[in-house]
């Protein structure tokens, strides 16, 4: 089906499309290549030669990064040095769990609000909007006391609970997605005696699979790159993002030198890059929707 579409797509369109995309690609790849080249430069070389090729190509930055990108954590048991591999592991758990929680909660609530016309739904919808506009100022102290009071401070599970919030733009995106699905699907199912729960899990959820996947991917990446919250609430298990943050503000000028910073950033971004390359088709999908006919 799609092959036929491409053949009939106008040539003008293709040319314009390709040129715009290429232009943007070039504008993005040049600084990216610069970043990569810089990561292979010696520090002094960079000071006097910011944009040329390295006088000496060196892997030192990468080798040293593994040593230096280690974080020292002080917890109740004493001092602990956490290495890159462990931080990587922490990041994966953190991003997966938080991403999933942050995707699931709005999915559940927006479904209820979009499809079930109780008065409460309207209230929730407006509440979400107001909540998005209300800035959270000076709430850190109360957050800490609540989290400690519940006994979930410094645990991964605690972080997942904190992230199980339906507030935010994800709610609106799911809402739009669910709104555009006709209720006829559900009617058919209800008539056959299926429970609401079955309708949700077996009919509706699959229909928003790509949206769910897209939001999850975006959340995963956000949480992978986030360091402010884990810094405060999960101090014993630092993530690579926190390692990067320590790197950025390190007092040692060898670490804050630009070649080293580029190295660290590239190292930290590489896993996400791989994940994205693997899953990009699933997310920006080419799934067809044939629900009503089937």
């Amino acid at each position: 089906m799609s092959k036929g579409g491409v053949q009939k797509t106008s040539k003008v369109f293709l040319i314009i499309g390709m040129s715009m995309l290429l232009l943007y690609t070039v504008s993005l790849l040049i600084p990216t290549f610069w970043a990569i080249i810089t990561s292979f430069k010696e520090r002094l070389d960079f000071i006097t030669n910011k944009f040329g090729l390295p006088k000496v190509w060196t892997f030192d930055n990468y080798i040293n990064a593994f040593d230096l990108l280690q974080v020292t954590v002080y917890d109740s048991l004493g001092r602990k040095d956490v290495y890159l591999s462990r931080m990587f592991f922490n990041s994966v758990i953190y991003a997966l769990g938080c991403g999933f929680a942050h995707t699931l909660a709005p999915c559940l609530v927006s479904y209820a609000v979009a499809k079930y016309k109780f008065k409460f739904s309207g209230f929730i919808y407006n509440f979400v909007i107001v909540a998005m506009l209300l800035p959270s100022v000076g709430t850190l102290a109360s957050e800490i006391s609540i989290v400690k009071g519940l006994g979930i401070y410094d645990t991964f599970f605690g972080m997942f609970i904190m992230r199980f919030s339906f507030l935010g733009s994800n709610f609106l995106i799911f809402y739009a997605a669910f709104k555009s699905i006709s209720w006829e699907y559900a009617e058919a199912g209800l008539m056959d005696g299926a429970s609401h729960f079955k309708i949700f899990t077996q009919i509706m959820l699959p229909l928003v699979k790509t949206t769910f996947g897209a939001i999850f991917l975006l959340s995963f990446i956000t949480y992978w790159n986030e360091y402010t919250t884990p810094m405060v609430f999960l101090p014993s298990n630092p993530t690579v993002a926190y390692g990067l943050y320590c790197f950025r503000f390190s007092p040692k000028s060898a670490i804050t030198a630009v070649p080293m910073q580029m190295t660290a950033c590239l190292l930290v971004s590489f896993p996400i890059f791989v994940v994205f390359v693997i899953f990009k088709n699933k997310i920006m999908g080419n799934l067809t929707m044939g629900g009503l006919k089937g």
């Binding site: 491409v6 293709l14 995309l21 600084p31 910073q261 950033c265 971004s269 890059f273």
Partner: peptide, 28 residues
């Protein structure tokens, strides 16, 4: 519409989000 090179462009367009804001702002 799947212009030629779509898979490649998808990755490129998303690159700034993958590299954290720190990297892209330093680069820029």
């Amino acid at each position: 519409k799947k212009v030629p090179g779509t898979g490649f462009f998808r990755v490129i367009l998303f690159l700034p989000q993958i590299l954290s804001g720190v990297v892209t702002s330093i680069m820029f």
